[in-house]
Design a protein around this nucleic acid. Sequence first.
DNA 1: TTTGTTGCAAAGGGTTTGCAGGAGA
DNA 2: TCTCCTGCAAACCCTTTGCAACAAA
Lengths: 146, 146
Amino acid sequence: MPRSAPTPHQTPSLRAAGMRQTPQREAILKVLKDAERPLSAEEIWSGMEKRRSGIPTVYRNLERFVSEGWAESLQGSDQVMRFVLCRSPHHHHHLTCETCGRTVEVDGCGVEEGLAAMERASGFRITRHQLTLFGQCPACRAAIPG
Amino acid sequence: MPRSAPTPHQTPSLRAAGMRQTPQREAILKVLKDAERPLSAEEIWSGMEKRRSGIPTVYRNLERFVSEGWAESLQGSDQVMRFVLCRSPHHHHHLTCETCGRTVEVDGCGVEEGLAAMERASGFRITRHQLTLFGQCPACRAAIPG
DNA sequence: TTTGTTGCAAAGGGTTTGCAGGAGA
DNA sequence: TCTCCTGCAAACCCTTTGCAACAAA
């Protein structure tokens, strides 16, 4: 249930979204902004200076940010939810390096034709999809050739 | 750490996989076989006649079946792991109807070209991907046209 | 008989809730 | 001042573990 204007992917503005501007919220956004990979709530919490917040506050705000479209929550293979700031307002996917954990966004999608073929094969109408990509980033490829 | 032969996707054979044949295991496999959608451990447990098992047994065997390649575990948007029997030995994806929950497998993949484009754009080497598809099955499309 | 499995109970770990006090606007 | 937000503690819930009893082979 997004509350903000239709194009919320710009620099998150607490005020514009009708949220009060608290140091906790700014700290959470800062940690997310500086992160190069999806972070768990606990990692975000640890990253906040002086831990001046409780974990529940982190969770509550994360949920808020996701519903605003500012962040995205990703389920890993473990039981932990991780969060990333959405840099792009467009449809995109996250590509995670399995060696160093760095995550980048890939704009666009590139699976449309594949989806169309699957629709024909299954008779389903495909309305949404979630694609998570894993591999190795350029730096790690260079470090560990093979 | 699969223990069975390289082609374990046929009808699961407990004996062939080096597992003892217990009523609990047969019951779990039966519930999964009859299911048309991914089931949580608790749903599987409830589906076993007379609940003649403890939840830990269900979890332990599910983990075993997954490592044998007989089943696959899927993370939904909630915090619950769900399980499906793999009908096909090939690379495939699961397509879930958002109206009735029915899930089918789509053989093949169809996103290869897209992945190649993403590799070029990102510089990553993509080694694995997870694609989950949502939409509406033929029956639900017929029932609720639009 | 041997050893893999099960059941119970309890622990674990991430996430959510209730509520009273605190602080933006 | 008026709400919204936060912090604390406890509750929740799914999943895992330890261990002794049990049963498949």
